[in-house]
Amino acid sequence: MTGPEDQVRELVARQLGLPDVALDDRLVEDLNADSMDLVTVVAVLEEAYGIRIDEERLPRLRTVADLAEEIARGREAG
């Protein structure tokens, strides 16, 4: 059984074409994501979890863990 954090890691890794990513990996600096990748990663997560992430928050979403937290927040709010 995997938790939402593991699922987010898996989805981010698949999207970026990486074997695995860690929760504290930084999306841009460590994982080499560009702005279009971030838009796509957010779209993939939104579709998977049925939530919406405010793009203005994107600059604050620096790590994989930040994304997982944002999803937890979005699901509580939704």
Binding site: M1, T2, G3, P4, Q7, R14, A48, Y49, I71, A72, R75, E76
Partner: peptide, 11 residues
């Protein structure tokens, strides 16, 4: 691939 999606676990 990708493998079929598992149901999303609740937080």
């Amino acid at each position: 691939y990708p493998p079929p999606a598992r149901p999303a676990a609740m937080p």
